[in-house]
Design a protein around this nucleic acid. Sequence first.
DNA 1: ATATTAATGAAAAATTTTTTCAATAAGGCA
DNA 2: TGCCTTATTGAAAAAATTTTTCATTAATAT
Lengths: 143, 143
Amino acid sequence: MTDLLKIWGERLRSEGYRLTRARRAILEALAAGESHMTPEELHRQARRRHRSLGLVTVYRTLALLEKLNLVQRVHQGALSCHSFIAVRLPTGHHHHLVCRTCGRVEEFPDCALDDVLRRLQARTGFAIESHHVEVVGRCPECQ
Amino acid sequence: MTDLLKIWGERLRSEGYRLTRARRAILEALAAGESHMTPEELHRQARRRHRSLGLVTVYRTLALLEKLNLVQRVHQGALSCHSFIAVRLPTGHHHHLVCRTCGRVEEFPDCALDDVLRRLQARTGFAIESHHVEVVGRCPECQ
DNA sequence: ATATTAATGAAAAATTTTTTCAATAAGGCA
DNA sequence: TGCCTTATTGAAAAAATTTTTCATTAATAT
């Protein structure tokens, strides 16, 4: 996890952003989180490291991290549209397998979906640019 | 499209809900829409049929229709978490292919995904219950 | 150390969604 | 048909969420 932090820090720097105390606290909370968190929840967590952290900064930082692809939103049907989770698989495209009970999120790679998409593209004439997959179930512990 | 309306009406009735003027207006707007709409947009459209329709009723009706699986939310990354579109493929599971430019939504069936999910389930130990796929691209007209 | 300027936090504003409640109208039934 | 019951509605208010503004702070290059 410390590894993740370092990588993220470097990434921010290399993009010309400053690595502030507020951002560090938010990144740490994200890296520690096993489950997706709303801005509010993330704020609560991150404040354990940085007491005076404002919720506004959480919103701003999430927007930044989302732009840089360091976090991803978690969608499931109606809910959780505004929950975020750290992106851990650094290489390539991946998706989320979310536990309905404990909220734990597992990343899984893209494999085998390409085929489906290629056929879809051929059949519909759409120029496919991106896709988003989310799978919900119960993790081994929660079953 | 008129067909769709009739089916929806019957479905509401059979579930014990009343087919009111407000709901009819909302259903018509949804059935006519080629693209996903936010509650606000839907309200604007539906009011052309029913002038005094309140936005609250749109929210309530969407919640109901979502519960009955007559509409689905459209997600794409950060945006559109709160946009809805009518479910047209009546049988079985399907997903959305969304045009980035004009917002048009095409439904496509589930085929070939089952395999991917079966393998995922075997590998992770999750009991997979549902999934959500959304593909974004540009439709033939918009390319 | 200092200067530059991006980033922060607080407050206010804007936006979105939900709740409350009295009035209305849908659908069943005589 | 016309009445009765009760789900549904719309308006207003409240709650929740997100964004903007702006003076202050602190991260980084020098």
